[in-house]
Structures are given as C-alpha cells and as structure tokens.
Computed example of a mutant assay.
Amino acid sequence: MLGERIGEDIGKITSQRVLPSEGGAPRIETSFQAAGAIYGVKATDLGTYVACVRPDGSLYGEGQGLLMGQAGETATWKGGGVGTMKKDGAISYRGAVYYQSASPAWQKLNSIAGVFEFEIDPQGNTKGQLWEWK
C-alpha cells in the first residue's frame, strides 16, 4: 500500500552519453540535478542512471545518487524502474528506490522502500515524486 508522499523535486538533465550495447540493446547513461524536499527538508538531488531499450520499446533503468540537505544532511540512494517514451520525446518512469543516511532528519529513509514517478520533458526538464511504500 502506498503511504504519504514524502518528497518531490524539479530539475534538469545535465549530461547523457551512449554506452556500449549489451545483447544488442541500446544503453544510455543520464545524469541529472534537481532541487526539492524530502520529509520536509530542502535538498539537492544528484543522480545518474543507465537505461536500456527493451525489445518492445519500453525502458529499464537502474541508478544511484546523493541527496544533500541545506543543513548538511546527506543520503545516498539506489533504485530501478521501467519507462515509456512518448511521441513528443518525453519519458516517464515508475520504480522503487532505497536510501541510506546517518543524518537524523533522514534516518527514517533507512527503513523504507520508496516508490517514485520520474518525468522528463522533451527539453530535459525533470520532475520527481516519491511515496513511502508501506
């Protein structure tokens, strides 16, 4: 069951590069930077993920990143999800993410699974939303 929404951010793709294919599947590495909040703490989210195009045209991606709060909080994350490419070039992902943090404001992240929506518009702008999976 999905719990409350615990975070959201807005950002921009900062770089992309094509990686060698594996098993014939095209792969792209994408990095982004976003600003928002998680559990009410304002934060910057830096992340990189690798997505491959599957035979049916859908995407599968895995990534990792770093959250940095305004008062020195830090958390790392790893996650994965599936995506679809829209006709206009936008991409929409859905998946799960797992965190690790020693910062008191974010220690609760250590014991949750997060479920996310991550949208990328044709200009490379991103919007992420995060819910606690109970």
Results as ranks from 00 to 15, higher is better:
128 G>M: 11
73 E>T: 07
91 I>D: 01
98 Y>C: 08
90 A>R: 04
44 T>L: 11
100 Q>V: 10
46 L>W: 11
98 Y>W: 12
40 G>F: 09
15 S>V: 02
31 S>D: 03
93 Y>G: 01
117 E>F: 11
64 Q>H: 13
105 A>M: 12
122 P>M: 09
69 G>R: 04
9 D>L: 08
47 G>K: 00
2 L>R: 11
125 N>L: 05
24 G>S: 06
38 I>Y: 00
89 G>H: 05
8 E>H: 14
11 G>Y: 02
46 L>S: 12
82 V>Y: 15
69 G>I: 05
78 K>R: 15
7 G>V: 01
53 V>N: 01
90 A>L: 08
58 S>N: 14
13 I>Q: 03
38 I>A: 02
46 L>E: 14
51 A>W: 00
128 G>I: 07
4 E>S: 13
36 G>Y: 04
6 I>Y: 07
78 K>C: 09
11 G>I: 02
78 K>D: 10
124 G>N: 03
12 K>C: 06
129 Q>Y: 08
35 A>G: 12
83 G>I: 00
40 G>P: 08
22 E>W: 09
30 T>A: 00
52 C>E: 15
102 A>K: 14
10 I>D: 12
134 K>A: 14
1 M>F: 11
78 K>T: 13
63 G>H: 00
25 A>R: 15
15 S>M: 07
112 I>D: 04
64 Q>P: 05
109 L>K: 02
105 A>T: 14
8 E>T: 12
